[in-house]
Design a protein around this nucleic acid. Structure first.
Length: 263
DNA sequence: AGTACCACCTGACGGC
DNA sequence: TGCCGTCAGGTGGTAC
């Protein structure tokens, strides 16, 4: 479930493997993921150019091409990348395959096809056009406070909204609310500046830790909720079984003892 | 401006 | 064995 830490790990992976190599050719086994760009246009644009640098905003990975455009990858919930040499190693569900002139391949894999592949002139303009909120790993405390408290709705829904803060999804919002001690259905109208500051501090810490562990669930600290996301997950602080509920349609894990509701 | 619900999409899993 | 319903969840659309 690629959220900000996963996408940041993909970005670093591309930086570590694919920069400054000339693209020989591109294969698009499935055009269903293309958004605003045709198969033909990608096949015309990519060969002959190189990946120059990468950027990320929320859950969007952007690769700047030496010829000027940005290749944008969104991973949905089942997307990932793999860099490999032998053609035989091509992963299942590869939806975009780039072959470099050093003989290596970069595969964009996406089993459930909920991701998007785009080609845009300007990444910053794209994030504005999509009205994405500030990146969750970069947002200042003051801006966060302004966007996240007050108004209507629940804190979980607010934090999941990419137009408010970009990068958080179901799993990491649950994680942040657990560590900060807020019930996911707490009303934003009941939160004050101190609550916002605490949430901001916790969010930054959770994201930094998750990035350090490359978003791999099994590598997260034992004190985290994430490894407990299954049938009978336990509160890592010893309060017994976690509860699940639906908040705006998403399965939500929380500990009723650690996370009292503010209604 | 909220919520509620559906659709997209595939594969795993439980029930019968 | 095998069929079917449900669930996973990021996003976007619609109805209310």
């Amino acid at each position: 479930m690629p959220e900000l830490p996963d996408v940041e790990s993909f970005r670093r992976y591309v930086d570590a493997t694919c920069l400054h190599q000339t693209i020989d050719d591109v294969t698009l086994p499935d055009a269903a993921l293309l958004a605003g760009v045709s198969r033909r246009r990608l096949a015309q644009t990519l060969p002959g150019t190189q990946f120059e640098k990468t950027a990320r905003h929320g859950k969007h990975l952007a690769v700047h091409l030496a010829e000027g455009h940005w290749l944008l990858l969104h991973f949905g919930m089942t997307g990932s990348l793999k860099y490999y040499q032998d053609a035989e190693q091509e992963p299942e569900h590869t939806r975009l395959l780039i072959r470099f002139d050093n003989g290596y391949h970069l595969a964009y894999i996406n089993q459930r096809k909920l991701g998007r592949i785009r080609l845009v002139d300007n990444f910053t303009e794209f994030t504005k056009r999509e009205q994405l909120g500030p990146d969750a790993a970069e947002i200042s405390r003051a801006t966060f406070r302004q966007l996240v408290i007050g108004g209507r709705g629940t804190i979980k829904t607010r934090l999941m909204n990419q137009n408010i803060v970009a990068g958080l999804g179901n799993v990491y919002v649950d994680e942040i609310l657990y560590h900060a001690g807020y019930h996911p259905a707490s009303k934003t109208s009941q939160l004050n500046a101190a609550d916002a500051n605490a949430l901001h501090r916790t969010m930054r810490r959770v994201l930094a830790t998750a990035i350090k562990h490359r978003g791999v669930p099994g590598d997260m600290p034992a004190s985290w909720l994430l490894p407990q996301r299954d049938g009978d997950g336990q509160c890592p602080r010893g309060h017994g079984k976690l509860e699940t509920t639906k908040v705006s349609g998403r399965t939500t894990y929380f500990c009723p003892a650690c996370q009292p509701k503010k209604t």
